[in-house]
Amino acid sequence: MSMFWIHFKKEMLEAARSYKWIWVPAVFLLLGVMQPVMMYYLPDILMMSGDIPPEAAALITVPPPEEILASTLSQFSTIGLLVLVLSAMNTVAGERSNGTAELVLPRISSVLPMMIAKWAAMMSLLILSFVLGYAGSAYYTSQLIGTLEWGPMLGAGAFYIAWLAWIVTLVLPLGAVLRGPAAAFIALGSAAALTMLASLLPSHLQWSPGRLSAIATECLTGGDPSAWAPAVSAVCFMALSTIAATLLLKRRPLLPQA
């Protein structure tokens, strides 16, 4: 436990000194707040631009609050996820390619506390950023458009965090064998592949953690999806990724020619 804290404090200090604690939450907050504001003013903006016939303009209305929140989530799935993965890609890969691992690893008898600390630090940043962005979006939505119900909103948030979390965690084992950018690219690619497969073959991939983002949206828009299997498999994915990262890093702690 004490080893975990030593590593965790180091990761937190690193994130603070590289300003991750500022720019990642800032991106999420901006994305979250922009969405309801944009949607609210969209009809007015279109009217102002002039060329639209009034019949067409009448079709464009402000969507209900739940849908706005759901569209915020889809914003997070692209730019938000990219920012998270990029900010996390060097947690393991960087230690290997910079060579800092060569000084740290001989000192510790077990790599697992270090890996868990890295994971926990990533999750802290992820949760804070998401909660900030999501709360910002919900606040503006309720101020500008209409009230939201707490239950579905919190449920959707929790599933969405699980979705972000398992993808970001993929960076750990990939970083233990590849360089940072390659790890980030493959993590994003496999997330996209799994999410797409889940929507192409819904009956075969009930358990797939790739479904979690769709489940979160469904939660908001009034469905009551059964989400146990994907949630459990996401947790398993994360545990497996962390353990795999530990074993891989132990096997090949240094890049050749490092």
Binding site: E14, R17, S18, G99, E102, P106, S109
Partner: peptide, 16 residues
């Protein structure tokens, strides 16, 4: 392992 001090050929530190 705790009683060994090791200095690699090109030691790399956390610059921050």
């Amino acid at each position: 392992q705790k009683r060994i001090g090791y200095l690699p050929q090109y030691p790399k530190f956390y610059g921050w």
